[in-house]
Every structure is written in C-alpha cells, then in structure tokens.
Simulated assay, not measured.
Amino acid sequence: MSFSVYRKIANLILLLVASNLSAQVTYYDAAEFQLLGKATAATTERYVRLPDSLEHVSRLPLWQLSRNSSGMAVRFRSNSTQVAVKWESLVNFHMDHMTDVAVKGLDLYCLEGKNWYFVNSARPIGKSTESSLISGMEAKEREFMIYLPLYDGLVSLSIGIDAGASINQPAIESPVREKPVVFYGTSILQGGCASRPGMAHTNIISRRLNRECINLGFSGNAFLDLGVAQVMAGVDAGVFVLDFVPNVTVEQMNERMEKFYRILRDRHPHTPVIFIEDPQFMDSYYNNANARKIKTLNDTLRRIFNELKKGKEKNIYYISSKRMLGSDREATVDGIHFTDVGMMRYADLVTPVIKKLLKK
C-alpha cells in the first residue's frame, strides 16, 4: 500500500474521531482566555503580532509575517478528563523542511509543580482541524497552556472539554507576565525549524525562566525596521534581545542599528539590551565566501556595539555565537535553520544571560 493511501486512511480516521468528539465535547472560544506572547493590544485580529497602525506603512512581507502567531500561547484551567481543539489556519501554509505541526499545529502543555510538561501536539489535516489532545485523565483541576502555530496564523481557535466540566482563567501566574522578555529577529527566531511550536527557542526560554517571552521574529525580514522598534518600545520589558544579524546587510546595520537601539533606549533608559551574533552556518566551514560574509557581519555588529559602549551606553550586552550550535554540526535541518537540537543549544547559551539580567 502506498504512502498516499496510508495518509488518506489516517486522515479518514482523524475525521471519524473528530466527528465522534463533537458529540462528547463542549467547545469554548479560546479568545475568552489569557493570551501570552503578544506585544500590543492595538490589533483588530487577536492572534497577530503587529498593530493595525502598521498595515499600510510597513513593508508587505513584514506585515504578512506579522499575521503568524509565533510565540503566542493560550492559558486556561480545567478539571476536564480530556482536552480537544478546533482551529482554522489563516493560510494553511506548508514548507518542505519544517513539520506541519510546527508550521500550523498546536502544542498542549500541563503545569506540574513549577514546571511545564509537554502533553501532545494537535496535527493539522487541512485548513480546519478538530483534534483530541488528551483523554482518560483523572477529573481534577489542572493548569494548561496551548502554544500556537509558528509559521501560520489563526482565524479561530476553540478549546474542547467534557460537557459539564469547568474551564476558567489560570489560577497560577505561570509564566510570570510582569517584565516580559522581548525578542526581535529572523526566521530562526520565528521558530524555523522546530519540530513543534513548544520547541521554538523563545518558548523553551520562557518555560525555563518562568517568564513571558514575546517573539518578534520575521522570516527573512529582520531588516531593523524602525516601526518594529516602536512596537517593542511600547512593552515594559525586562530584557530586549536583538538577534537580527542573519538577515541584514552591513549597510543596513550601519544605517539603522543605532537608530533601532535608540528607540528602545529612549523609552527604557535602564532596560538591558542584548545583541546576538550571526550563527556559524554549516556551509561556512567549507564555503569561504560565506565564511567571510558571516565574519564581516559579526565584525560590524561588534564594532557598532563597541562604539555604543565607548559612548557610555550602559546595560548593553553581547553574546558570541561561537558555542551556539555545538561542535558536531548536527543542529540544523538545512545548514541554517535550527532543529530541536539547535533550539535547545541556543536556549542553553542565552537563558543564563537573560536570567542574570532579570535579577538586576
């Protein structure tokens, strides 16, 4: 039997399960519950990352990417014995080097003590999907979190529980929402190419720090747009993390990097700002031209950073990418975008720095 036939059978089974679910589950609009990871409330649509005011003034690719729900999560509490979801993707996007679960699926996590643990992923079968995430649980109060798609958006999302069970706002503030960590960057920051939403490194870092993280990663479009800096500056952040180097040119850094930084610093004179180098991508070990390009970009980042330091700028920090991906060269899916291994290694490098700065 061919793979395509197997897939059709699997999809049919999922549809049959979904139709059976609808008779047993009561659904609630996820918009009724707490949404984490959003930089601004000035949006008509719920699951988007940039304000409506930028629609006609930002670059079109940037605006389109801001419709992706990367880094967002819905928090709720329930005593249900099961959790199901129904959602409609904005685009029904697909990529050949990233799982559909990560691109347009969902992850369910449950809080046990002080730690969040993965429960299951909801795998999309089309633009609209209904899926059971967990069943057969003891009927007791639990705290849940659903991570949203990394490379697609949501038209709608509903959470399903037992008919007659309760569903409420979270009783425990986890992650802590005060002074979130705000990240700006590229496709890697947006989540490419984690295997599922919970494995994007901003989500890993959020769980490790127990602190809300805001993901402003824009695939191929981290060009130091000053409008994004204005959005970031509107957040009362604990730390700003700037990881844009893989997308920019030397000319863009020379022209915009300090302007971007000044927008943050003018609004937040004491908030730590971290600058992160371009990773050592795999082909640069063999392609001399690419190796020189990465070195030139990182040299430019370091030079401008040092100029800021000489200008008496305080609370700015620099993270080298030398140990970002380890020494085995096994942390990417395509030589550039991180696998889960790469995401974990990035989190290992960056989390201790952020943790220390949040305590200041």
Rank of each mutant, 00 (worst) to 15 (best):
E307W: 02
L358D: 09
Y317A: 02
R49N: 01
S327M: 03
S219M: 01
A10R: 15
E143H: 12
V333F: 02
R142D: 05
C193W: 14
V250F: 06
V250S: 00
T26R: 10
T339Q: 08
R77F: 05
D236G: 09
V48A: 10
S132C: 12
V48E: 02
S219Q: 01
D52W: 10
F223E: 14
R75S: 15
K86N: 04
S66N: 11
L133G: 07
F93R: 15
Y346E: 08
S58P: 00
V273W: 05
K295D: 09
H337F: 12
Y286F: 10
S78A: 10
T351P: 13
D152H: 06
L54C: 10
L209Q: 03
L65W: 00
R323H: 12
V74I: 15
N287S: 01
D283K: 13
E255F: 04
V181K: 05
N20W: 15
A18E: 07
A42L: 10
V155H: 09
K295E: 13
N315M: 02
L36W: 09
K322R: 13
F338P: 08
R303M: 13
P279T: 05
K179F: 08
K309F: 06
H56Q: 14
D100S: 14
H268V: 06
D340Q: 02
N298P: 11
V333Y: 03
S80A: 13
V17Y: 09
V350C: 03
A171R: 09
H201A: 11
R75N: 15
F338K: 10
S128D: 02
S22L: 12
D299I: 07
F275T: 05
G185E: 01
N254C: 04
A10P: 00
N203R: 05
T249C: 03
E178S: 14
V239F: 03
D100K: 06
V83W: 00
M253C: 02
T186I: 03
N203Y: 03
N288C: 07
F305P: 00
C193I: 01
I263D: 14
G311S: 11
F338R: 12
M137G: 09
R302Y: 12
F281R: 15
V182N: 01
I316S: 08
V25W: 07
S19Q: 14
G191D: 08
H56K: 15
K322H: 05
F305Q: 03
E258W: 00
L54S: 09
V176D: 14
D334A: 07
S187N: 07
K309D: 08
